Amino acid sequence: MPAIKLVIKEMKDLYACNEIYISVIKENEPGIRVYEKVGFEPTGELFQAFHPEPIYKLKV
Rank of each mutant, 00 (worst) to 15 (best):
E19Q: 15
E45T: 07
S23P: 00
V7H: 12
P54H: 04
Y35G: 02
P52G: 02
M11V: 10
N28R: 06
I55C: 05
Y35K: 02
K12W: 06
I25L: 05
E10I: 07
D13M: 13
P54N: 08
K5T: 12
Q48C: 06
G39S: 06
I25G: 01
R33E: 14
Y35R: 02
E10S: 10
Y56R: 03
P42H: 12
P30C: 07
I4C: 14
Y56H: 01
E29Q: 13
D13Y: 11
E19P: 03
K57E: 08
E10A: 13
E45V: 09
G31H: 07
P2V: 10
P2A: 07
V60S: 10
E10L: 15
Y35S: 00
I20P: 03
P2C: 09
F40Y: 07
K9Q: 15
Y56M: 13
V60L: 14
A16R: 08
N28P: 00
I55L: 05
Q48R: 05
I20L: 14
P54A: 11
Y15A: 09
E41Y: 10
V60P: 03
P52T: 08
P52A: 09
L6P: 01
H51R: 04
I20G: 04
D13F: 12
K59T: 15
P42I: 08
S23Q: 03
E10P: 00
S23Y: 12
E45K: 13
F50M: 01
I20V: 14
R33P: 00
A49Q: 08
Y21T: 02
P52H: 06
A16C: 10
P42T: 08
V60F: 08
K59Y: 11
H51L: 07
Y21S: 07
M11C: 14
M1W: 13
G44Q: 00
E27L: 07
G31N: 08
K12C: 10
Y21A: 01
